[in-house]
Amino acid sequence: MQNTVQRVSILVAALLPVVVLGFFVMKPKDSPQSSTSVAAATVPLTAAASAFTFTNGTYSTTVSYSSPGGADSLGVSVTLKGDVIVDVAVTEMANDPASQTFQDAFVAGYKTFVVGKNIADVQLSKVSGSSLTSQAFNDALSAIKTQAEA
């Protein structure tokens, strides 16, 4: 597991500058194969960011890399709004099971996952979720559950 974490960290470290800086020189709908990011890779992120104003939109690219299993790629799209990244989507395109595992871990690493807290432990005035159902509906549901168990 330690090994997996390390390798994923390396993957993330290797991919992110390419992905992020790649967008600085791309226009929306540019060819995904654009590889003009190499020269920009030495520019500090903040300096690069302040030098440009980006057109709002979703920028997509495919990043290729070599793994012990051979060549692999990862599709990435970033949505910019007011020069801020508001959404990132990663499409896994792994060729072998090992790469699939690493790409899963990579995807899990950038996404935000929610967890629950007990209602009693959070100060609230109201709760919103699916609409509360009527007693008639609950009764109907209990009835079919009873039938299913019989």
Binding site: G116, L124, V127, S128
Partner: peptide, 30 residues
């Protein structure tokens, strides 16, 4: 039933728990 319209003259905020989709005794945010 959890869909809410709220108005307050003094613009006091209402804290609405966001129910956990699998566990109705929990919230996943406010």
């Amino acid at each position: 039933g959890g869909d809410i319209r709220y108005r307050n003259e003094t613009a006091e905020a209402l804290r609405v728990g966001l129910e956990h989709p699998m566990n109705t005794s929990q919230v996943i945010g406010v």
